[in-house]
Design a protein around this nucleic acid. Structure first.
Length: 487
RNA sequence: GCUCCCAUCGUCUAGAGGCCUAGGACACUUCCCUUUCACGGAGGCGACGGCGAUUCGAAUUCGCCUGGGAGUACCA
């Protein structure tokens, strides 16, 4: 078996999409599993839509996901350059070869003429297939067009290629995930491989690049299936070895439409900004189409790679549901060390003055509030009461708790007694327990007792463990807030 | 319109003729734990799109229908 070489070839017309990330992951896994190479190629032939910011975003996102490439624009490699726009000078040679071998021809049709053909086809409810009117132009006719100032595009002759390599116009290939796939080539129009401005089209450039980069397996979205037939014909016409193909189902939004901006985040970087961990995102996206044999869903890329088999991927589309991603993210957050979490949470705490807390207090706050975090940004609204002298009392805490006679009584007693308490974790734990017991004997439920203190000190009816809160806030602030809540 | 792909709980999936009164995970829900929220633990709800065919036997094979998705550019 020849060396496995797979690639991810994003087009920098946007930030790295989660769908692209999943495709990259499956390629990466395949390379890892087979000991092959994973290559990154930037397909920026459409200068109009390309921007450096997007290229940077693609690099950064892929790196953040840990999908490191063996060859690519930045790291180089034997078969560079790995940026398509830097490869423009190598395509004409292959166009010429196709021209010489009769697999391609010049087309002088104007956009208007092409448009008219298309309209005619739709009017007659016929599928549009290029008329091939330029396939057998005489030299005189070509000369005439050139005199008119027309510049030719180069089209690939589907029929010539088909007849040269297949007995039947219906051609087949075996897809690694979908199995036998077929297409009637007579329905494929002679597509342009080189635009009149001299730049190659996608279908041509990919083949040349994949061929020259010795890509052995092409794993990509199923939206490329129709391209695959065209590309196979080009490989054949060029006398090149046709790689293996594997087409993945698409990722759809919950409404079954294409995952787009209106559904929320679509780019990996957007998920990160929202507080998703790249490991969780990658793990989640791996499960869209792949299932672990042992049922253990939370696993690292290495663990996935061990059991990964491209032939076991699901052939169908899958829907991107936040519920499971959220759950997975919370699981990954739980596994983070305190030190790690402390750092990762800082970007989401910028609205607070962290200098109010020393390291011990900050650590304590994080440990006390980390449990319910689904995404890192949840921390923002979970900790306001740890900062500032006073707290904002929310409505529920005020009316349902602080306004009650019981709460007022509890607070008065608390203020009296706590004045003498030694402010250590162990002691507070004991004192509060005794406090609850005392009230329980008066017929006040433990949680009602605690609610009063919590409402006064945090302004809320729920939150982190009270002992931890008191430890972080300190005795002075606690007493101050408690007194303030007493009417 | 035409072509191609796909089709198991709401979602992600296991299942490659009898092991399936269809398994797991998320979500939802009940209970337990508990100073609140949560976490955790134990349960529950919940699916083979329809119709034919093959077979002693079909979620698993075949056909048709239906539904969903994709492609149909001198975009990638």
């Amino acid at each position: 078996m020849s060396d496995v070489r797979v690639r991810i070839a994003p087009s920098p017309s946007g930030n790295l999409h989660v769908g692209t990330a999943r495709t990259a992951l499956f390629n990466f896994l395949y390379a890892k599993k087979t000991g092959g190479k994973f290559i990154l190629r930037i397909e920026d032939t459409d200068a109009e839509r390309t921007s450096q910011a997007y290229i940077d975003n693609i690099f950064d996102s892929l790196k953040a996901l840990g999908l490191n490439w063996d060859e690519g624009p930045d790291v180089g490699g034997e078969y560079g350059p790995y940026t398509q726009s830097e490869r423009f000078d190598i395509y004409p040679k292959y166009v010429q070869k196709l021209l010489d071998d009769g697999f391609a021809y010049e087309c002088f049709c104007t956009p208007e003429e092409l448009e008219a053909e298309k309209e005619e086809a739709t009017k007659n409810k016929k599928p549009y297939v290029y008329s091939k009117r330029c396939e057998n132009l005489t030299d005189e006719q070509k000369e005439q067009f050139r005199k008119e100032g027309r510049k030719p595009a180069i089209r690939f002759s589907i029929k010539k290629a088909q007849e040269a390599f297949y007995d039947n116009p219906v051609i087949h290939f075996t897809d690694m995930v979908k199995g036998d796939l077929h297409q009637d080539t007579s329905l494929i129009g002679d597509f342009v491989i080189m635009k009149s401005n001299g730049s190659p089209t996608y279908n041509f450039a990919v083949v040349i690049d994949d061929m020259l980069m010795k890509i052995s397996h092409i794993i990509r979205g199923e939206d490329h299936i129709s391209n695959t037939f065209k590309q196979i014909l080009i490989y054949k016409a060029l006398g090149a070895e046709v790689p293996e193909f594997g087409h993945l189902g698409m990722i759809l939004a919950p409404d079954r439409s294409k995952l787009s901006k209106r559904h929320g985040a679509t780019a990996v970087s957007e998920f990160v900004e929202k507080g998703y961990l790249t490991d969780a995102l990658l793990n989640f996206v791996a499960l869209l189409g792949w299932a672990p044999a042992d049922g253990v869903e939370i696993r690292t890329v290495d663990e996935i790679a061990k059991d990964f088999n491209i032939h076991e991927l699901s052939a169908s589309n899958s829907i991107f549901e936040y519920d499971k991603l959220n759950w997975m993210n919370s699981q990954y957050i739980k596994k983070l060390s305190t030190e790690d979490l402390k750092e990762r949470l800082k970007p989401f705490l910028t609205k607070y003055d962290l200098s109010e807390l020393n390291d011990e207090q900050y650590t304590r706050m994080i440990n006390a509030t980390r449990e319910p975090l689904t995404i890192l940004s949840d921390i923002t609204d979970a900790v306001p009461y740890f900062f500032g002298e006073d707290v904002e009392i929310d409505e529920e805490a005020q009316t349902k708790v602080l306004d009650t006679d019981t709460a007022q009584d509890v607070l008065k007693t608390f203020v009296d007694m706590a004045e003498d308490w030694e402010w250590t974790e162990e002691n507070l734990h004991q004192k509060l327990e005794d406090f609850r017991t005392m009230y329980k004997e008066k017929g006040v439920k433990a949680k009602v007792t605690m609610w009063a203190i919590r409402a006064a000190v945090t302004g809320r009816t729920c939150g982190a463990d009270m002992v931890q809160i008191l430890m972080v806030i300190g005795k002075d602030k606690t007493m101050k807030r408690a007194k303030k809540a007493i009417k």
